[in-house]
Design a protein around this nucleic acid. Structure first.
Lengths: 212, 212
DNA sequence: AAATATACTTAACACTGTTAATAATTTTAA
DNA sequence: TTAAAATTATTAACAGTGTTAAGTATATTT
């Protein structure tokens, strides 16, 4: 390994070190509480050093966004082996909601925050939402397969994909933002939020089944 | 009017003055760019004076949240006079999405931000999400009426209401967060975001019609 | 060994929300 | 009417934020 290669590798190490520290902080203390200065303190460097490896804070946030994306994609990819398309669709929906519940920080980073999308807007052309698109493509493919199995006849595949995503995202985001909790006063109070998620998802599945 | 009454009125005036300034700022420059100091500058007072009328920033944010709530409620209430229940349901959905598009700042304040819900959490007991519940109740009532017209047989009213809300909220929030925009690369690029909203909504309506 | 480039740090700027201390004003009581 | 008390608003300050410019070591190249 040449000296130059070593330098590049070291630089990459530093980048991932910063990213790891940022991830640790935002998972443990939330995304709001994660500051450049705190990240620097974790790995014991000066706050300004971070700017040698990341352009600005949004750059770090976007890097974490990508990490979360590939984590979700990994979870989704294993489900693509489910033979029966409609079963696969259900599994994808469940996994998506499960991701939101078990990885709330990542979910916010992926689908609720504006910053990562704005970052992409600013870097339009050179970069696009590849990771996100890949996940969405799996949904499109699955719904296409469902249609070949006889489901959703005469419906536009992409529009239905968007509709399905909207539904589960709506559930997940209302849950994470705390709005579902506040509705507990209105709805019968015995049920927990997680049950609401489950019930609403099941109802949606039964709706999809009916329009076979 | 007694002296004391005058004082109370003056105090209320001041509160609404601060609120108006906050609203003006967050509508024009976005919610992120609205700081206590900027609000103070608009009405030409010291930043600390604001703390004499509002406990903290979240208090102001919550006050704006309530304003937005009642604005949405007003828009919804006029639709309650639509006779045919399913037509009313469609009208509510359209109005909801239209609210998100025409009042993005308010929509974020109402359904995307955590702060107002956290504020309610902290003031649990004394206060609850009355304004929000009222809007949701209209949806529940409408779906109940739909069921009496023969729609959605055998489905739980509240769960279906939550499902419907999730769907339109999912669409609205993905639109406002900029995620829909990024998908344009994947989906055919001619269509605009607003068209996607419209198409997805129409598809959802047709789904609901099918499960009559 | 001197010049140059790299890596990192300190100091500083312009912000943020918020509190304590202080000054000005108005209201109440003697 | 005047002195005391309460109200109202202000300035100064604290602790934090993202970020940039200037300075300082260290390492590399000439």
């Amino acid at each position: 390994m040449s000296v130059q290669e070593k330098k590049i590798k070291y630089k990459e190490d530093f980048r991932s070190k910063i990213l790891a520290a940022a991830k640790k902080l935002f998972v443990e203390e939330g995304i709001e509480a994660t500051s450049i200065r705190k990240i620097a303190k974790v790995i014991d460097i000066s706050p300004t050093t971070i700017y040698l490896y990341y352009k600005d804070k949004r750059d770090i946030v976007y890097a974490l966004h990508l990490e979360g994306c590939s984590l979700l994609r990994t979870r989704m990819e294993v489900l693509m082996h489910v033979d029966h398309a409609f079963e696969r669709l259900k599994a994808i929906g469940k996994a998506y909601l499960s991701f939101a519940v078990t990885e709330p920080g990542y979910y916010e980073l992926l689908f609720m925050m504006k910053e990562p999308m704005q970052f992409l807007d600013d870097h339009r052309g050179e970069d696009y939402w590849e990771e996100g698109d890949r996940v969405f493509e799996m949904l499109i493919e699955t719904i296409k397969d469902c249609q070949q199995e006889g489901f959703f006849k005469g419906m536009d595949t992409q529009t239905l994909s968007l509709q399905a995503w909207s539904t589960v995202h709506g559930m997940a985001s209302l849950f994470l933002s705390g709005h579902l909790k506040q509705l507990n006063n209105l709805l019968f109070s015995e049920a927990l939020e997680a049950e609401f998620l489950e019930r609403t998802f099941q109802l949606y599945v039964s709706m999809l089944e009916r329009i076979k």
